[in-house]
Design a protein around this nucleic acid. Structure first.
Lengths: 210, 210
DNA sequence: ATTATGTTAGTGAACGATCACTTACATAAA
DNA sequence: TTTATGTAAGTGATCGTTCACTAACATAAT
């Protein structure tokens, strides 16, 4: 203590020596989001305490509340933003001027890639959909389900047929992902993308033809 | 006190007049299970307190622990017993001496009927699978996934193909159920059973042929 | 018949732990 | 000086669980 106060007056240097934890722009927020996502996916939202998140993000509980108004808001924002991003990616595929089969193949491949590259994110979206689905807007650029349904309607399915077909098509991707999460399916999901896409195409063609 | 001791000696009759809450065989346990299931499905396990369950079942918190060792055990037993019952029902279909298409149609119909008749139960199994799936034995008579996989292997699919095909087949039933839960699909799911069965058959035949 | 003893199923009031969140204060940057 | 970002030490509420005790009934010895 005495050494510090003695050297205090004109000090600037010693700060830089330490790779300061805070004060690095928006990196703190990103770190909080990343750690929260990993913890939420692994232990659940209720199973994860704010202490856990703050600790792993390298700051105090109080500091976390400088970035998010509440744990619930953090969980919701995390879900809604990534869910919307996936929905927009699907819309982008739909917007391209190619055939239905190619669109379906690309959407399936997109989902498989997301699963392989960001398993924690995918698991979070999968497992906690039921906590947040009621807060998702019913627009194709914020809602994966609406995006898929729109794609099918654009391909000529009636809204009624598109509803069931989009459910089954989603199930053909989601459930293999669940299996992969629990170790019932080995290797990257992308390796199965073609077979999944074939099944999805069969379902959609069936719904269009019948 | 004086009135009671006066009438005390030869009393037996007045007991039967009152529909006593306790002492009625195993009804209490069943009531706890039913209320817990409804609450768990609606508000989640963590969102439901032991106080809630006890209140709705018409007894005190302490009494609940005469019937279940802990809230977690109650939740687990609830899941495992019903999950196993569904698995056994699927195995029973598989044991019958009929063709693959008919088996698949019956299993799909079975699941749709369960959803329509006991939505709370189905929702609980669906939403909280991830809390309990790690505790489910990997035998066909306790595990829905194993039961379906066995059915497909019995139909001639290789274990490798059966794994992915059972995932997609399950997805074709589970995801429409999720949609129905969220009001994206109207009416009883049983009304869609035939169309779902057709999709599932297509997937399985595709995996067998390829 | 009465009494002693035991079991089962219940009550309601704690208990200790945990949690989300707040407050008071510090410090560095603008 | 003001603002953004941080820390440390709280706060009150809630939760799962336990505890001491009681009511109702069964059984067997007295």
């Amino acid at each position: 203590m005495s050494a510090r106060s003695q050297a205090a007056p004109a000090r600037r240097a010693p700060r830089a020596a330490v790779p300061r934890r805070g004060r690095d722009g928006t990196a703190t927020r990103a770190r909080i989001e990343a750690e929260a996502l990993a913890l939420f996916a692994q232990k659940g939202i209720d199973g994860t305490s704010v202490r856990d998140i703050a600790l792993r993000a390298g700051l105090s509980e109080g500091a976390l509340y400088r970035h998010f108004p509440s744990k619930e808001e953090l969980a919701r924002e995390l879900f809604l933003s990534h869910y919307a991003a996936l929905a927009r990616a699907i819309c982008a595929v739909d917007a391209r001027d190619v055939g239905l089969a190619e669109k379906l193949r690309d959407v399936v491949a997109l989902a498989c890639r997301l699963f392989d590259e960001e398993p924690a994110l995918f698991a979070y979206l999968l497992i906690h959909q039921h906590d947040h689905l009621r807060h998702v807007p019913a627009t194709p650029d914020a809602n994966v389900v609406e995006a898929v349904a729109l794609l099918l309607r654009d391909a000529g399915l009636t809204p009624e047929r598109a509803a069931l077909a989009s459910a089954m098509a989603l199930g053909c991707v989601v459930q293999p992902a669940v299996f992969a999460l629990y170790g019932r399916l080995d290797g990257p999901l992308a390796a199965r993308a073609d077979e999944i896409a074939r099944a999805v195409t069969g379902i959609v063609e069936g719904a269009r033809g019948a």
